[in-house]
Write a protein that binds this DNA or RNA. Structure first.
Lengths: 234, 234
DNA sequence: ACAAAAGTGTTTGGATTACACCCATGG
DNA sequence: CCATGGGTGTAATCCAAACACTTTTGT
C-alpha cells in the first residue's frame, strides 16, 4: 500500500467559538484550559480530531462534551496553521463557530470545564491564537447575519420581535428603527405569530413568534438585507 | 517540554482551485497527478504543508511551483477532513482558491505537471474529493463576486468594459444588460479610463480601463451589488 | 453601404428610509 | 392615572431595472 513516507505528520485540533444570547447581550462561552501548556488560562473549548472522525464530527463531539447539546448550528470558520501557534507541538486547528440558545444550555453544563459566559465586549486574554479566532468569528457572524436569517439559532423556540431586534442591535452594536425592523422581519414570511405574549419584559406584553421551519430552511440562503448599510463590515 | 502524547498525527495537504479567464470562458487549471495513488489522473494542484510553514505559504509555494506566479489572489476555502478522503493514508486538505490572469501564466508553465486549462463546464472526473472542492470554490466565487470587486484579479492590467461584462456573464452563466452594467461598474469609481482602445474584438474598438489600485484596496470589502438578483446563490 | 460591437439617457416601479402617534397594562 | 414598552402607517427619496437608438469603423 502506498504511503507518503517523506512527509511530516502533525496534530489536528478543533476549537469552537460558541456564541450565545441572553436576551440582552451577545456572549461567548469560554473554559479554563485543563492541560499543559497554558493550563488554567481562559481558552476556547477544543480538542483533537480522532483517527476515525472528520473535523465537523469532532467539533460536534466537543461541543456536546461541554454543553450537552446536539444538533447545534456549527460552521467551519478557518484553519489556523501557524507553525508556532501551539508551543508544545506542531498543531493546526480548524475553528468552528457555534450558535446556541443560551437557555437550552443552562443546567446541562459540564462542570469539569469550569466554563463561563463572557459578554462579547469583555473577553479576557486567551491562549494561543484564540483571540484571533474570536475576532474572525465575530466578523463572519456580522457578515453572514446581514444577509441570512442565521441569528434565529441564538433564540429560543418562541421569541418576540423586540427580543430579535435587541439581538441584531447587539450583533452590530447599533440601534435600529423598530417600525422598519419589524416590517422587514415580518415581510420575510419566516415568522408565525403565536397567540400568547411575553409579559416578562413589558406591561403590555409582546407577542411571541415561532420560526416557520420549512420556509426557514428554504430561505436560509436567500438575501434578506436586515441591516441598512452593510458596508463597513468585512 | 509538554507534548500531546496520546493523539494521532496526520498529514496536512493543500489543494489549489486555480481559476483563469481567457476573455471568453471561465477555466480551471488541472494537472495529471504525478504520484500514487491515482497517478496519471486529473487532479487539482496540491502538496503537503511542510514542517516550518503555514498552509497559506504552502498554497502560495505550490501555486508558484506550477505557474511561476507570485503575489496571486489566494483565499482559504475549506478544510476537507473526511478520514477516508485519501485511500493511502489519513490526510486532511486545506483547499485554497486562486484567481489568476491567464495571460500572465502563459509561457511560465511548469511542464513537469502536464497542466491543462479546462472550461468550467467541462471538468473531467477528478481524484479524491477534488470535484467537491471545485464545486465549493465555484459557489464561493459566485457568492463573493456578487458583492466584492474580486473578479478584476482574473483580468489583465488593461481591460475593456465589454470584457469585464463577459467575465461576469461567464461566472453567473447569464446575460446582463450592458447599459446597466457599465453604469454600475463605472459608478464604483474603481476604474480609470485609458486613452487607447482594444481593436481586437470589434471594429469600433473599446476603451481600455485600469483599476484604481488605491480605491480598489479601500473598497475591496464594500458591497457593490454587481449582480441584479443575487438570490438563488448559495 | 452594411454588419458588428461600443457607447450612452430616460422613465418607471419598488424598496428603503425617516418619522410620530396610539395602545395595553401593571403598578 | 401614568410610566413603560409594544405596535402600527405614510410620505419622500433613492436605487435598480427595463428599454432603443446612435456611433464608429473594417470589410
Amino acid at each position: 500500500m502506498t504511503r507518503y513516507t517523506k512527509q511530516a505528520r502533525l496534530l489536528l485540533a478543533v476549537d469552537c467559538i460558541i456564541f450565545g444570547f441572553d436576551g440582552k447581550e451577545l456572549k461567548l462561552l469560554l473554559i479554563k484550559r485543563g492541560m499543559e501548556p497554558e493550563k488554567g488560562k481562559w481558552s476556547l473549548m477544543g480538542g483533537f480530531v480522532q483517527h476515525e472522525e472528520d473535523s465537523e464530527s469532532a467539533a460536534a463531539r466537543i461541543l456536546k462534551q461541554l454543553t450537552g447539546l446536539e444538533g447545534v448550528y456549527l460552521e467551519q470558520l478557518h484553519l489556523f496553521s501557524d507553525p508556532d501557534r501551539d508551543p508544545a507541538e506542531r498543531t493546526v486547528s480548524a475553528a468552528y463557530f457555534a450558535l446556541i440558545n443560551i437557555h437550552d444550555y443552562e443546567n446541562q453544563l459540564n462542570e469539569d470545564y469550569r466554563a463561563e459566559w463572557f459578554p462579547i465586549h469583555e473577553i479576557p486574554r486567551l491562549i494561543f491564537d484564540h483571540s484571533e479566532m474570536v475576532q474572525m468569528a465575530k466578523a463572519k457572524l456580522q457578515y453572514k447575519a446581514a444577509f441570512h436569517p442565521i441569528l434565529f439559532e441564538l433564540l429560543p423556540g418562541k421569541f418576540t420581535i423586540p427580543e430579535l431586534q435587541t439581538l441584531y442591535e447587539a450583533i452590530y452594536d447599533t440601534t435600529l428603527d423598530k417600525r422598519n425592523f419589524s416590517r422587514k422581519v415580518l415581510s420575510t414570511g419566516l415568522l408565525i405569530k403565536q397567540k400568547d405574549k411575553d409579559k416578562e419584559n413589558s406591561k403590555k406584553g409582546a407577542f411571541y413568534f415561532k420560526l416557520d421551519k420549512k420556509r426557514y430552511t428554504a430561505k436560509f440562503h436567500a438575501f434578506l438585507n436586515f441591516i441598512p448599510n452593510p458596508d463597513n463590515l468585512k
